[in-house]
Nucleic acid binder design. Structure first.
Lengths: 193, 193
DNA sequence: TTGGCCGTGGACTGATCGGTACAAGGAGGC
DNA sequence: GCCTCCTTGTACCGATCAGTCCACGGCCAA
């Protein structure tokens, strides 16, 4: 069966690792714990993973790569500014909600990466920020947005990223709804009248 | 001299621990590393700290307590809504900028706390969120703000908290300026016209 | 000078760390 | 039946983990 194929097992292990790293931290999770959760001996586990750090790298990189691809698609699709911003926000929140453990690991534990692994994840993260900056710049150029301080990009991303900590996937507010609520506030403000 | 008093040494060690925990993670920092950085043997180190977790607890709790005290003062001072919000934001950003390591530890590593230590830190964090909710509710009651989804509080805090990751204390933008820029966007929106 | 005590370093504990080596198990092709 | 190769568990590596214990040193009071 496919779930016991090499690739399938690998994927399964990455998922388990994401949950454990999210719960107990990267350094706080031992390979023994990992292999037990995967139902494998330590030797068998290492048959699938190159190293513990590889797991961390893959967990982090996969998600941010996905968001970069999503942002590229939207930026290339000729959407009008407001729809572009709302679309990017929805894509991010949806992904975070679907992969909360992975994002928790990404945000909390990327500093545990070393050398090239770390560089690549940081670079990918910066690329994503650049896409948001592009979207805002385009809105300013179009006259849809007023000129806005560059650092606001960080604020917006903070607002969105932080959801990994508290969003409840089965709560009464869905990701699209939440993204719209955030963008309503951001576009038109919360001041009365 | 006072810097070599028991209390002084203790404080010094907490500060060093904050830096190391911020850089290498709580579980990623050994007591050996800690004692070396403090210029003490392991025995001497334990003369000052109860345990490694105590350090983590103190680093985290101190800062959030300080912010709670600050928020309580402002909420009790009869400030008008806009000034209240701007004041709370400035207080938070100032504190984050001044204690970046501590806040990094607080945000990333609080999950490493156990038992009561964790409960207390989580409770303090929730209390702080409650103060922001109060401030917004007051603004809505006054008619200064339009009714706003409850979850926006999380968004605002995300925007502000996230600064621990990127704010440059010696950069060209100061904390007050940044807080105002965030609140400008939040109060009046970034849409043109 | 003596006595007490705080501060200190380092040896030591048992457990766990990430990772490797290797031989046995098991299924499929011939 | 035999051979091969993927998968597996276990034993083992040196290093490090958090924390304890204790004896020595230096300082101060009497």
């Amino acid at each position: 069966m496919s779930t016991t194929s090499y690739a399938g097992n690998r994927e399964r292990i990455v998922g388990i690792a994401a949950e454990l790293f999210a719960r107990n931290g990267y350094h706080g999770t031992g390979v023994a714990e990992l292999s037990k959760a995967a139902g494998l001996g330590r030797g068998a586990l290492y048959h699938y993973i190159g190293s513990k750090e590889t797991l961390l790298y893959e967990i982090s990189k996969t998600q941010v790569d996905r968001m970069n691809a999503h942002a590229e698609t939207l930026l290339g699709s000729g959407l009008e500014t407001e729809d572009l911003l709302r679309g990017m926000a929805k894509g991010l929140l949806r992904n975070i909600a679907e992969h909360r453990s992975e994002w928790a690991v990404f945000f909390r534990e990327y500093t545990a990466l070393t050398g090239e692994n770390r560089d690549r994840v940081v670079a990918a993260r910066e690329r994503y920020e650049g896409y948001w900056r592009q979207a805002l710049d385009r809105g300013v150029a179009d006259g849809v947005l007023r000129p806005v301080p560059r650092l606001l990009v960080k604020g917006i991303l903070g607002m969105l990223n932080y959801t990994y900590l508290w969003f409840e996937p089965d709560g009464e507010v869905g990701t699209d709804e939440l993204a719209d609520a955030f963008l309503d506030a951001l576009l038109d403000g919360i001041r009365q009248g």
